[in-house]
Write a protein that binds this DNA or RNA. Structure first.
Length: 718
DNA sequence: AGCACGCCGACT
DNA sequence: GTCGGCGTGCTC
């Protein structure tokens, strides 16, 4: 009896067999609907066979085949690799490759940018001011000559669709192509090296300083791949970055067929993108980490932009690393892969040092007029009394304002203050469900936990002793914004953090304002760090970054270095020289001296030597077992057992080290007590042989009160 | 992951 | 007496 082996989206360790009814064409890669228990599920056929190990009586039939899409074989292989490498359920790993199955009529997708017609302009201007739902969009349409549809919320797209029916808006058409950017020597050399290697596996590390024009290198390499009839897969860390990147791509390459893939797309749009990729119609597939599973029949080149970025590692469900999956896939398909960054991860750095990756350097900014910014380190402690704004930074901002230039002040913490303490007794705002302090917020006023979302009223007096002298400790974006407003009352200030800027629309509107020169000072967190060109921005202030140096996580310094370089890179990108002022009390720390001398390479070598000395990743290979339960004793009991099993298995796996369980950095979160345990080996293969045996023994442990997971190649030991 | 089955405590 | 709490184990 013909059998289909189906990977179903359940946390079971195996696939499930179903018999194939006569007349139903079921082949490897087909998406089928089946019954599992009482449920009906869609899964992907990973193999067909002439019979099954399972009792015939237990087998049920394949219900039907969904559509005509097939998951390509290399993607099936990638999913199998991901399941095995990351110790995940085979079916959950394969679920990553399924197209969105909601068969809703593919909405006539709006693409690119739209502009108002004259009639539309009249109609919208005449719209009553209280037509609130459309108001923001209307204002933006009336202001802008063209609006990028990708930056809109789904609600706004609905409105826009309506307007298009009335012929109020029409597609803006392809923007006039930017004058073809002359590649400099380093750029054309890098692009040529990649282009020459098309047709076979090769891995490149493109190490280019901020503003060195890595995108142009990717584009030139992509041109070569596409000209030969190939498809290019380009991964980016965040959806925030895609609209701008797409704009640039479309402007530079009119007519380029791009498909976007990220989780913020509606099911219909995602399905369209999936089909465009699968049919070969899309020449460039641009997306976040999940795009690494896209069907690409003519894949010719893979690019991972900002490859150091932590968001490539999925932190829940299937804990895969999209960069590593991309490398695996490139090897499997025998095509080149490009890993680009201004601050390469130490994994990639080591790969380049060992000769596994070919190193391509872009040591200068592409625009010859744009110098790398000058960096100054000034003491932070001295600034504490002035809400964090030291004299140098104050003078710098004043200078910028006088010249009509923009400044950015960065602090990596939202809210007003880190915590609230009582000046009289020892009381401190503490989360009841986490081992963390509650952050002070003023807009709106509240004490909030950034780990579990718990919220309390902002107390007027100490809940413990009644004293009214409560002191907000530490610096957040809201406090900084207030201090800047007090210091520069006439400056136009915008705050950008997760609280102020929800959704893509909000971010795009700040970006537009900055571009329209309606903002003098930007205050914000991480959100501001990445990949946005602000030509008038000449000063960057970085506050509170020393906090990262206290972190117990071994990757903290590497992450800080990347963040500093990214933020500093916002300064002075177009002609005007930039300045970066970093307030630190550790000016001799290698991470700051590297920033001063613009020498990330030196820092990466130093950090790598430290990892070598301490036998830490990427020199060794690690997995992290993390567990949580409501009761401390349950976690401890589980971890104790897990540790014992690990030690016992070492008789068979001598090359693997099993460390003792320790409380997690955040020992309690949302009412769960948390612990973790590290296992590692100098050899990846040894760790890979150990992990399944260990996992199976742990799965057999009684007591399900503890939730646990294995994280292979964890982003940190936190 | 769901979902059912099963074996123990407080309710109309 | 049974309603339902969640701990345990199975699903082709």
């Amino acid at each position: 009896m013909p059998i289909a082996r189906v990977a179903l989206p359940v946390a079971a360790p195996t696939t499930f067999d179903y018999w194939i009814p006569e007349g139903l064409a079921v082949e490897r890669g087909a998406i089928v609907r089946v019954r599992l228990g009482t449920r009906r599920l869609a899964g992907v056929v990973i193999a067909t066979a002439s019979d099954s190990e399972v009792d015939r009586a237990k087998l049920s039939p394949v219900v039907d085949v969904v559509g005509d899409e097939r998951v390509p074989f290399d993607v099936l292989d990638l999913c199998a690799f991901v399941a095995s490498y990351y110790q995940e359920a085979i079916g959950l790993a394969h679920a990553l490759a399924l197209p969105p199955l909601r068969a809703q009529a593919a909405s006539r997708a709006l693409r690119g940018s739209c502009r108002l017609t004259d009639e539309g302009r009249r109609a919208l201007a005449a719209l009553p001011a209280r037509a609130r739902s459309a108001c923001g969009l209307r204002d933006r349409m009336l202001q802008d000559t063209a609006l990028d549809v990708d930056t809109l919320t789904t609600h706004e797209k609905t409105i826009l669709r309506e307007w298009r029916r009335h012929r109020y808006v029409v597609p803006a058409g392809e923007r006039a192509a930017r004058p073809a950017l002359e590649l400099n020597a380093a750029q054309s050399e890098a692009a040529a090296a990649i282009a020459q290697s098309l047709g076979a596996y090769a891995a490149f590390m493109v190490n280019g300083v901020t503003g060195s024009g890595k995108t142009e290198v990717y584009l030139a390499a992509a041109d070569a791949a596409i000209a030969a009839g190939g498809q290019v897969l380009m991964l980016v860390p965040e959806i925030n970055l895609t609209p701008q990147l797409v704009d640039r791509m479309r402007a530079a390459r009119p007519g380029l067929r791009v498909a976007l893939m990220h989780s913020a797309l509606a099911a219909g749009e995602r399905r369209d993108a999936w089909r465009a990729a699968a049919s070969g119609e899309a020449q460039l597939v641009l997306g976040t980490r999940l795009a690494v599973f896209a069907p690409l029949p003519s894949l010719a080149l893979v690019v991972v932009d900002e490859e150091h970025d932590a968001s490539y590692k999925q932190q829940d469900n299937v804990r895969y690393h999209a960069r590593d999956a991309a490398i695996w896939r490139a090897r499997r398909r025998d095509v080149p892969v490009v890993l680009g960054s201004a601050t390469p991860s130490l994994e990639t750095w080591l790969g380049a040092r060992d000769g596994r990756y070919r190193r391509l350097d872009l040591p200068h900014r592409a625009d010859a007029r744009a110098q790398l910014p000058g960096v100054r380190l000034t003491p932070h402690r001295a600034a504490a009394a002035q809400d964090g704004i030291g004299d140098a930074l104050r003078a710098g901002i004043a200078g910028c304002l006088a010249r009509g230039e923009q400044s950015l002040v960065f602090v990596n913490r939202r809210g007003f203050a880190t915590s609230l303490v009582c000046a009289a007794c020892k009381w401190e705002s503490q989360c009841t469900r986490c081992s963390a302090r509650l952050t002070v917020h003023r807009q709106p006023p509240a004490l909030r936990c950034h780990h579990c979302g718990h919220e309390e009223r902002l107390p007027r007096a100490c809940p413990s002793c009644g004293n009214v002298d409560l002191v907000p400790l530490g610096l957040g974006t809201q406090r900084l914004e207030r201090a800047l407003a007090a210091a520069f009352p006439r400056a136009r200030i915008a705050r950008v953090d997760r609280d102020s800027t929800r959704g893509r629309h909000a971010f795009a509107s700040v970006r537009d304002k900055v571009e329209a020169n309606a903002i003098d000072i930007l205050v914000g967190t991480q959100m501001l760090a990445k990949g946005h060109d602000f030509p008038r921005l000449t000063l960057v202030g970085i506050l509170g970054s020393d906090n990262a140096l206290y972190s117990a996580d071994f990757r903290a310094t590497e992450r800080l270095a990347a963040l500093l370089v990214q933020v500093a890179g916002r300064a002075g990108r177009a002609g005007s020289p930039g300045e970066v002022i970093v307030q630190t009390d550790f000016p001799d720390h290698p991470v700051y001296t590297a920033l001063l001398s613009h020498d990330y390479a030196q820092l990466a070598d130093t950090l790598l030597a430290e990892r070598e000395a301490a036998a830490l990743p990427p020199v060794t290979h690690a997995a992290l077992l993390s567990a949580e339960a409501h009761r401390r004793e349950d976690v401890d009991a589980f971890m104790h057992a897990a540790h014992e099993i690990g030690i016992e298995l070492r008789t068979l796996h001598a090359e693997v080290e099993v460390f003792s369980p320790v409380a997690a950095l955040l020992a309690r979160r949302a009412g769960y007590e948390r612990s973790q345990l590290v296992v590692q080996s100098a050899r990846r293969g040894a760790l890979q042989r150990f992990l399944p045996a260990w996992r199976e023994r742990m799965e057999a442990l009684p007591g399900r009160r503890t939730r646990w997971a294995i994280d292979v190649d964890p982003a940190g030991f936190g």
